[in-house]
Design a protein around this nucleic acid. Structure first.
Length: 592
RNA sequence: GCGCCCUUAGCUCAGGUGGAUAGAGCAACAGCCUUCUAAGCUGUGGGUCGCAGGUUCGAGUCCUGCAGGGCGCACCA
């Protein structure tokens, strides 16, 4: 249960009851009515803005309305206090019995606690990673991968039907470059000395084993020596083979992070069967019919020199009509469609597959592309489709505070796989979500494997392991104690009377609200912050037992009390596990 | 030059879509171990939310301008 939603319904009922009694006028708009977390100083469990929302409509002073509603709300069995504060807030305090019921709910639901029907099964497409199939993934891709995957899981938990998608950029100039680079390595593998890798190519050493494999096939009986073939022929082969091999490598990198997409969508498929009948061509025709395309000449960017600028007549999309700054070209001078044209067709295809809500996760270097893509989605869906683009900022890889340079040549990108192998997938996944997506992230390889509270991964894992440890010790202290999923909710929870114990339950009970609000905001990072918060509250409670043995979870000779406290401990482990499940991190039962 | 993102405690960052006296952690200082894991906890100090205006009952949050940092800027994807 999201208790804020529950309380909102109660407040709403009281407003309607008051209306029935003539205390408030009829026809009130309750759209903005909310029940939220109050500031700490309020010392309350929930706060409603009801009176502030209604004041103008009802033509009454907000504090008057607040007093009127507070009096009614105070009679509700779950509410022990309803007070007015500030300009007209209503602060609510809930009964301990209400909170104990929430703990029972946690225990009954297990890791499914927090599951929501908010999304109502609506289809959402989350496209993430979509790295060019020209080489292995680097750490920056890893951030997008983790972010997208966690967001997808979060949306599923919130009741959406999510499709995880990867867009393969397997068309255009870069495929020729890939083919040529691979062919060069192939000639080396066949014993030639073609010299240094050509300019405008991918010098990466990861192509060498692929070329060696192809060379081996060439030498085998019946094999083809591609050097004897025409350029068009070997280019097609090496492009196709290169993409296939690179996608295998990328999928392996993602697999090491526990990430698997539902759909791999090929850009090339959008350009088939040919230039004039492909889905890209159909998309352009649609925009043409709508009057969103014209032929014109683009002005060079101001205040910036472009070396080989030449005015060119070309097909332009009227992006400015949909909020972009300039109109955007759809066709290259060669006659080929631009990447942007393909991308419009791609999003049109998503929409036609039934996705009104589309989320794209992009790297920082694509920030300048957002406006035109949103403009295109608005145009191509007649305003019916909604695109949210999440930009993931750069990841700075450090070791003990010093920047790391791992690759020996060509580029300063650090391979994702190297980092996953060094610190583990769980650490990578967690750390990638310890910052908002639009803020740069420092990833210190040394710190994230430390066993100290400065390491958030450890801190949260430790809370889970500690809870499991307590459960193990309880079994030793009371060998016949039933800690199963039916026995724990049946425990006498009135023995949980300490304010910190109830306080911890309140944090656990916040999980459903966190899931829903994080899902709506498309912000999975909130999960890690929440888990850190739960862990801190649990560690604090644990430590109260160091000074006072009566406050420990396991109290010898006090079976019922121990059982009640174990219910809380198991509840903590359960909610932590539930949160970790969303971000794809395995909860640990012990850390030794 | 233009666009997008960022600017919150000495440092690293939260801040639940406009609410109340802006919160954590680190660092500093003062405490807590014959313990269910001290791999942790408790307390204290620390802020003109980059600057200046505006919108309204109310702004860290929305709008405008300015400053600083990052990313990007036809015929790559």
């Amino acid at each position: 249960m999201n208790y804020f939603g529950y309380l909102r319904d109660i407040v709403k009922n009281e407003i309607e009851a008051a209306t029935g009694c003539g205390e408030l006028p009829t026809g009130l708009d309750l759209g903005a009515l909310a029940v939220t977390q109050p500031p700490e100083v309020a010392h309350a469990d929930a706060a409603s803005n009801a009176a502030l929302v209604l004041a103008r409509q009802a033509k009454q002073a907000p504090r008057e309305i607040a007093a009127l509603l507070a009096e009614r709300l105070a009679r509700h069995p779950d509410i022990v206090a309803a007070t007015t504060a500030g300009p007209g807030f209503i602060n609510l305090r809930l009964s301990d019995a209400f909170w104990r019921d929430r703990l029972r709910e946690v225990l009954a639901a297990g890791v499914r606690y927090g599951d929501s029907r908010l999304g109502g099964g609506a289809e959402v497409n989350v496209e993430y990673v979509s790295a060019n199939p020209t080489g292995p993934l680097h750490v920056g891709h890893g951030r997008g991968a983790v972010f997208g995957d966690a967001l997808a899981a979060l949306l599923e938990k919130a009741g959406y039907a999510v499709t995880r998608e990867y867009y393969i950029n397997d068309a255009g100039e870069q495929m020729r470059v890939l083919a040529d680079s691979l062919f060069h390595r192939y000639r080396e593998a066949m014993g030639e000395q073609p010299g240094p890798v050509p300019e405008r190519s991918y010098p990466g050493e990861y192509l060498i084993p692929v070329a060696a494999k192809i060379a081996e096939e060439s030498r085998a009986p019946g094999g083809t020596d591609w050097r004897t073939k025409k350029r068009e022929e070997w280019r097609e082969f090496f492009a196709n083979r290169g993409v296939a091999e690179m996608m295998d490598a990328i999928k392996a990198d993602l697999g090491a992070l526990g990430i698997r997409h539902d759909t791999f969508f090929s850009e090339r498929d959008l350009q088939r069967p040919d230039h004039d009948t492909s889905e890209v061509a159909e998309t352009v025709k649609q925009l043409m019919r709508q009057g969103d395309i014209y032929t014109g000449v683009l002005a060079p960017p101001k205040g910036m020199t472009v070396d080989d600028w030449e005015p060119r007549q070309q097909a332009l999309f009227r992006a400015t009509r949909f909020g972009d700054d300039i109109d955007r070209p759809l066709q290259k001078s060669s006659g080929e469609w631009t990447y942007f044209a393909s991308d419009i067709a791609y999003h049109r295809d998503k929409f036609r597959r039934g996705f009104r809500t589309m989320i794209d996760v992009w790297g920082a270097d694509h920030g300048g592309y957002v406006k035109r893509m949103k403009a295109a989605v608005a145009a191509i869906t007649g305003g019916q489709g909604d695109l949210d683009v999440k930009i993931c900022q750069l990841v700075n890889v450090l070791k003990d505070g010093q920047p790391v340079r791992m690759s020996k040549r060509a580029g300063d990108f650090i391979a994702l796989r190297a980092v996953v192998d060094e610190v583990g997938k769980d650490v990578v996944r967690f750390i990638m979500l310890t910052r908002r997506n639009d803020a740069p992230l420092d990833f210190d390889l040394a710190r994230v494997v430390e066993q100290s509270r400065e390491n958030p991964v450890f801190y949260v894992q430790y809370a889970h392991a500690r809870a499991c440890s307590v459960r193990r010790h309880a079994r030793e202290a009371f060998p016949d104690l039933d800690l199963g999923p039916t026995a724990l909710p049946a425990a006498d929870l009135t023995l949980l009377a300490d304010a910190d114990e109830i306080g911890l339950i309140k944090r656990l009970a916040y999980w459903p609200e966190l899931v829903e609000s994080a899902a709506v905001a498309h912000e999975p990072h909130r999960i890690t912050f929440y888990l850190h918060d739960v862990a801190a509250a649990f560690h604090a409670l644990w430590n109260k037992g160091t000074g006072d043995a009566a406050l420990r979870f396991i109290v010898a000779e006090q079976r019922s009390l121990t059982l009640a406290r174990l219910a809380l401990v198991v509840g903590v482990a359960s909610v932590v596990a539930s949160g970790l499940a969303v971000i794809g991190v395995t909860p640990l039962e012990e850390l030794r």
